[in-house]
Amino acid sequence: MNTRFKNKMINEQGVTLVEVLVSFVILSIILVSLLSFFSQSARTNQTSEEILDATYMAQTQMEKLYQLSKDHSIAQGITQLKDHNFANTIASDGQNSFHLEKQTSHFWITVEINQTEKDMDDLYNVLVKVYDQDKKRLEAQMETILAWRNE
Rank of each mutant, 00 (worst) to 15 (best):
Q80E: 12
I51F: 10
Y66Q: 08
Q59D: 07
N45I: 12
S36D: 11
K70T: 15
L31V: 15
Q46F: 15
A75F: 00
H84S: 11
S36M: 14
T89I: 14
E49Y: 14
I51G: 00
A54G: 14
L81F: 03
Y66F: 09
N88H: 04
T89F: 10
S97Y: 06
T79Q: 05
N45A: 15
T60N: 10
G94Q: 00
A87Y: 08
M62E: 06
S92I: 04
I74L: 10
D53E: 11
S41D: 09
H84C: 01
L34V: 10
L65P: 04
F37A: 11
D83L: 08
A75I: 09
N85I: 03
I74Y: 01
T60K: 03
Q95P: 00
N85A: 11
S33M: 13
N96P: 00
R43Q: 14
S69N: 05
L52S: 06
L52H: 07
F37H: 10
Y56P: 00
E63Q: 08
S48Y: 13
T47R: 09
K70Y: 08
N96G: 01
M62T: 15
I90Y: 03
G77N: 02
N96S: 10
I74M: 06
N45P: 02
L65C: 12
M62R: 11
I90R: 12
L68H: 04
S41W: 02
N85H: 15
L34S: 14
S73D: 05
S36R: 09
T89E: 05
V32F: 11
V32D: 02
S69T: 08
N45K: 11
A75T: 12
T79M: 00
Q76F: 09
Q46K: 11
V32N: 04
Q40F: 10
N45D: 11
Q95A: 04
S69F: 03
E49N: 13
V32W: 02
N96Y: 06
Q46A: 14
Q80K: 08
Q61H: 04
T89N: 08
D53C: 01
Y66P: 00
H84K: 09
A42T: 14
Q80F: 10
K82Y: 01
G77E: 02
Y56F: 08
E49T: 15
L31N: 09
Q46T: 14
S48K: 09
D53S: 10
L68D: 06
A54C: 07
K64A: 11
G77T: 07
Q46S: 13
Q46C: 07
F37C: 09
K82P: 07
L81K: 06
S39P: 05
E63P: 02
Y66A: 07
E50V: 02
G94A: 02
D93T: 10
H72G: 01
T60G: 03
A54M: 03
L52N: 07
L68Q: 04
M62K: 09
E49A: 15
S48D: 09
Q95K: 03
Q67H: 05
K64R: 12
S36Q: 13
Q59W: 02
H84P: 01
M62I: 14
S73I: 08
S39E: 13
T89V: 14
M57K: 10
T79W: 00
Q59M: 04
L35H: 06
D71M: 04
A42E: 13
Q59A: 09
D71H: 08
S92C: 01
N85F: 11
